[in-house]
Amino acid sequence: MSGDLGFIERINISSLTGFVHSTFRRTINIQCKENGELFTIASSQVDNGPNSLVINAASLDEFNIDVNEAVFVKNKMLFISNKLAIVIDKADKWESILPEYPSNTQNVIRNIKKMKEYIDNHGKAGGMKKKLSSQSPYETELSRLLEERTILLEKELLNNRLAHALQHAVSLIGLGPGLTPSGDDFLVGLFTTINLRNSPLYSQQSFCEEVVQRAKPLTNEISYMALKKASIGKVRESIIHLVHSILYGKESDLYLSLNKVLNIGSSSGTDIALGLICGLEANLRVGGQL
């Protein structure tokens, strides 16, 4: 069992009450009354993440937990109604810490090229990656908007005009199928790269915060939470591993960690990975290395 350091501390000081916001086979989201944020109880098949607690259960279905059930902390244990009690004293503490941007970027340039090729072959289509098979008018229009808006965003980012990029980033929020819309996932990847310490865009973190300030009414609460955390560099463990592999890893490391990200959601992993590429290329360009 493991969990986000902040989440564990919150349980230790008994400052978490709330209710179940949404339930899935592998995750249960809790709406915290104290700060309004979502916290996640995840099955052992899910990696660590911000505001998450990974418990020793393969599936969460067996607990029969329903939306709106009460959540509270007592004696340093997290209770969901009378159906689940989580003891955290033996949980491994995890914290989302991104690697530093390297001074030598040759590895980054090489890995991005490989990553693009890999996504072309193995990435999931339907979101940022276009479907090659025939599409419905809805899918065609969605792809068109995603592509158009991403190109505009990339163009401004590559020219280090983040003020202009803001409107294009906002226009992606909530766009796309899935629980976390493709546009949001792409931005999660992009925000991650802007939060890499020592990166050329690191000084532009306010861009992420400004986008998130406008995001709340444009997407659902689950996706908003991922965006909010990513805007301050807090992302899932698998994304951190992938970023590390891109920055410092060998080809074999890269594919291993890329595969894990590509397996997130339906097209979510691919959309996140493409957001990472976009942000890293912008960093390289702004840093004069591309």
Partner: peptide, 9 residues
Amino acid sequence: MGTEMNKEV
């Protein structure tokens, strides 16, 4: 999901 952007599409 019923987001503004999806509704636009």
